[in-house]
Design a protein around this nucleic acid. Structure first.
Length: 814
RNA sequence: GCCGGGAUGGCGGAACUGGUAGACGCACGGGACUCAAAAUCCCGCGCUGGCAACAGCGUGCGAGUUCGAUUCUCGCUCCCGGCACCA
């Protein structure tokens, strides 16, 4: 045995062994209960980064821990392979997106394998392969026929110079990232999925997700944004038109001083003869579509010349167009109550509109809006009523007048799934001049995406490919054209977790194996996916459930949202030159060291500050582990141990620590998901064992047991070194066959405890007592304690004594 | 702007249910081994004062609840994630 830790050699050897024995290949025939661990699949950008290492190590630790605890564990891997970066790379390097993507996948697969992950590679999928996306097209058609997919116009970022649609991230300060041209909002027809039909289910489902982080559930709930409010119709004066508004503050109805509508509101159409208003509306089209951009823009408005009638007061209320009103929330119009809404207040101040207070508060509304609770004033028959009561009473009144009433509203909008891009799954629809839009016949699937293409800056090349576009209408058989938009890549990532189970099924999207493996028991990925990906995946899962393709309503039983890997406080990125290449680390220290450090450096949910120095410490620990095992296999001198010489106190100290560590590590992995503290407690045990290594009062067998248990506890984190050392220490067994160690409770019984003594909450001493010593005795001991007596003089009075059993005593004096 | 999260020594972090703040690791300082260096091992290490014993202060800022607050409540500051076409 090599006295130095030969990580490179052993990792390569063991990885070859795992690969040739298909050590992590699983199927449905096992008697053990199933456990499905999944890490969010990567976009094949070309190079693995530390965020991936963190994500996949967490998944691997959980997988291996569950295996040792008797589960039939599946851990698959695949590629989220469609998307924008391939098109950008294609423009830059003049390579086809398909070629670029497949080369990246090959490279990243090799990098992943060097990490020694317990992955069942036979299940590998790539979403850009036709075997995968043909089922997506099948699903699209199925859902289109069910009415869950429809077409409508909606807004995109339009770059008028490059003549192309831009993603939000490609719009920088309202300008196109390549062209620098001012971006406009443009309406184009697109396909939508009716996720709003599932809004209530998606809210209620959150309650069943006990093992999801609370903040993710809160974010999703807020995103869906179910609110109960009041819809109110305003009659337009001098016309029989009506403007509907939605409000959650019907109590402030008497405080309305104007109505604000979105620039896209239908009422604006009849203002086409006013050049000033048209200019304003056109001006509102400038800039990108993102909500962040719209809501941080300076508030602007213009009076329309239109008045509506107040439903209760019957006075004239002016109608303004305002850029802060969103067309896709509520009715695209709001009743403005400047006194009690911050945005309305700011707008009213800017345009000198009146501010009428209707909810009482001490400060008034001279400085800012008051949005809190209170009694109504200036509201006629509703004066003196608490505003939450008033909300209900006014809603009822509106209802009785036939001018609206109670309404449930959602912030969630239907999911736009069309993308004006090339590198994505073709939408299987055909446009016919006679018959309109119709889905492709199921027999004609898949619609293959042509892979040998040249990309330029101006949009999708599919539109220019006559071979692709020309087709026959499935209804009338006449010449028609194929849809050239592709699907949002969130479509692929919304069901990949199910396909891993039925990875090689050629005749259906999913089969019974999906019913065996789903739901995912443990899902690990970045917090940045807390809303969109996770909400779309939950939605899809319910759709698949309704199609009876799977048996579970929620896709992910337990969720762990991992934090980002930072260097010098910022995200690692090529442009900042602060990237760390995982494969350089593996070359220098080995995969085990890289895995151990990334799990040790910070709690999984928090962002991790990368440190080149820190990794040395992790490596040093593994070297010490190697050495201590080496000393046990090859003892320097043969110490003769006689049972009667063994000091039971020294042994029981090690036994206590050993069992306390098993208990701690198990709890950290099972309940707390606290990997860093699990590792530090194993380090403590190794430190103690090192200290006791030459202690003749401890039997060799206890030392050996301790090392064996350390190896088992470390296996999920550092599977190569532990397998190697186990093999050398235990010639007759394999570490793969070992169960997770169990705690010997009897070793954890203490015969003395330390109680700390405080005076007025300040630490002044401590004492060793036997557990369960009577409270009175403990108090007496505490008061007469050496560190305590000097604080208790003749003129101090003991007011009270608080005793926390076997832990702490606080003497309160005056 | 809206939603969610975070802030603890020189650094990464620990303290799990309101009960000893700083476990474990890094960096640093001192020592051992060595011709020397690396590696390894041992000791020290929150700040201030003090030779020391010890005392005071200390968990982003400001208040509050409590015998006792890193932990709970309220009000701020700064940083990070998301905001529907990055994935």
């Amino acid at each position: 045995m090599n006295p130095n830790y030969p990580f490179s050699e052993i990792e390569k050897k063991i990885q070859i062994e795992w690969e040739s024995s298909e050590a992590f290949s699983v199927n449905e025939g096992s008697k053990k209960p199933k456990f499905y661990t999944l890490s969010m699949f990567p976009y094949p950008s070309g190079k693995l980064h530390m965020g991936h290492v963190r994500n996949y190590t967490i998944g691997d630790v959980i997988s291996r821990f569950k295996s040792m605890n008797g589960f039939n564990v599946m851990q698959p891997m695949g590629w989220d392979a469609f998307g924008l970066p391939a098109e950008n790379a294609a423009i830059q390097n003049k390579t086809a997106p398909a070629k670029w993507t497949y080369e990246n996948i090959m490279h990243m697969r090799e990098q992943l394998k060097e990490l020694g992950l317990a992955i069942d590679w036979k299940r590998e999928i790539a979403t850009c392969s036709v075997d995968y996306y043909k089922w997506e097209q099948w699903l699209f058609i199925t859902l289109y026929k069910k009415g869950l997919i429809y077409k409508k116009t909606s807004t995109v970022n339009w770059d008028p110079i490059d003549q192309t649609v831009l993603a939000n991230e490609q719009v920088i300060d309202g300008k196109g990232w390549r062209s620098g041209g001012a971006i406009e909002r443009k309406e184009i027809p697109q396909y939508f999925m009716k996720i709003t039909d599932y809004a209530d289910q998606l809210i209620e489902g959150l309650d069943s997700l006990e093992d999801w982080p609370e903040q993710v559930k809160i974010m999703q709930r807020n995103w869906i944004g179910k609110s109960t409010g009041c819809e109110i119709e305003f009659n337009v004066i001098g016309s029989n038109e009506k403007i509907k508004v939605y409000t959650t503050r019907a109590d402030t109805l008497m405080g309305i001083t104007y109505l604000a509508v979105a620039p896209e509101h239908p009422i604006c159409r009849r203002l086409s003869n006013s050049i000033k208003i048209q200019d304003f509306i056109n001006d509102c089209k400038k800039g990108g579509v993102s909500e962040a951009e719209i809501s941080t823009a300076e508030k602007k408005g213009i009076f329309t010349g239109i008045y509506v009638e107040h439903p209760l007061l019957n006075n004239k209320v002016p109608v303004w167009i305002a850029n802060y009103v969103l067309i896709n929330y509520g009715e695209g119009a709001v009743m403005a109550v400047p006194a009690h809404d911050d945005r309305d207040y700011e707008f009213a101040k800017k345009y000198n509109l009146p501010i009428k207070q209707v909810v009482e508060n001490e400060r008034g509304v001279a400085e800012d809006a008051y949005t809190g609770p209170g009694l109504l004033i200036n509201s006629g028959e509703f004066d003196g009523i608490d505003n939450s009561d008033a909300h209900n009473k006014i809603t009822q009144k509106i209802e009785s007048l036939g001018k609206g009433g109670l309404k449930i509203n959602y912030r969630l909008r239907d999911w736009g799934i069309s993308r004006q891009r090339y590198w994505g799954c073709p939408i299987p629809m055909i446009q016919c001049n006679k018959c309109g839009d119709n889905p492709v016949e199921e027999n004609d699937l898949p619609i293959r995406l042509p892979e040998n293409v040249e990309i330029d800056k101006s949009g999708s090349p599919l539109k220019k490919m006559q071979d692709f576009v020309k087709c026959k209408c499935p209804v009338c058989g006449e010449e028609a054209s194929r849809e050239t938009d592709t699907l949002d890549t969130f479509f692929e990532s919304s069901w990949y977790f199910a396909r891993y189970a039925s990875y090689d099924q050629e005749n259906a999207m999913l089969d019974n194996r999906a019913k065996y493996w789903l739901p995912v028991d443990y899902y690990i990925g970045g917090v940045e996916h807390a809303i969109l990906h996770l909400l779309y995946a939950r939605f899809f899962n319910r759709v698949l459930f309704d199609l009876k393709l799977i048996d579970n309503q929620e896709p992910f039983k337990k969720l762990l949202t991992q934090g980002m890997v930072l260097k010098n406080g910022t995200k690692m990125s090529k442009s900042k030159g602060n990237t760390v290449d995982p494969n350089d680390l593996i070359k220098k220290y080995g995969a085990d060291t890289a895995r151990l450090f990334i799990m040790f450096a910070a709690p999984a949910e928090q962002s991790l500050e990368w440190s080149d120095d820190g990794i040395e410490g992790a490596h040093r620990f593994l070297k010490r582990l190697w050495k201590i095992a080496y000393q046990n296999i090859n003892p320097v001198s043969s110490i003769k141990v006689r049972a009667e010489l063994i000091d039971s106190k020294s042994e029981s100290e090690l036994k206590y620590k050993l069992n306390a560590t098993i208990e701690k590590v198990t709890d950290d992995l099972e309940r707390r998901t606290s990997f860093n503290t699990a590792i530090s407690s194993i380090m403590e045990l190794v430190n103690l064992l090192t200290k006791k290594q030459s202690d003749n009062n401890i039997s060799e067998s206890l030392k050996k047991d301790t090392i064996n248990i350390i190896l088992l506890l470390l296996t999920p984190f550092v599977p190569h070194i532990t397998k190697e050392l186990w093999g050398m220490l235990n010639l007759d067994s394999k570490i793969e066959d070992q169960p997770w160690p169990t705690v010997d409770k009897s070793a954890l019984i203490k015969d003395e405890v330390v109680v700390v003594i405080q005076v007025n909450g300040k630490l002044r001493g401590n004492m060793v007592i036997s557990p369960d010593t009577e409270e009175g005795t403990v108090k007496e001991m505490a008061i007469s304690n050496e560190g305590v007596v000097k604080f208790i003089t003749d003129d101090t009075k003991i007011i009270k004594v608080i005793y926390v059993k076997n832990k702490l005593i606080n003497i309160v004096i005056k």
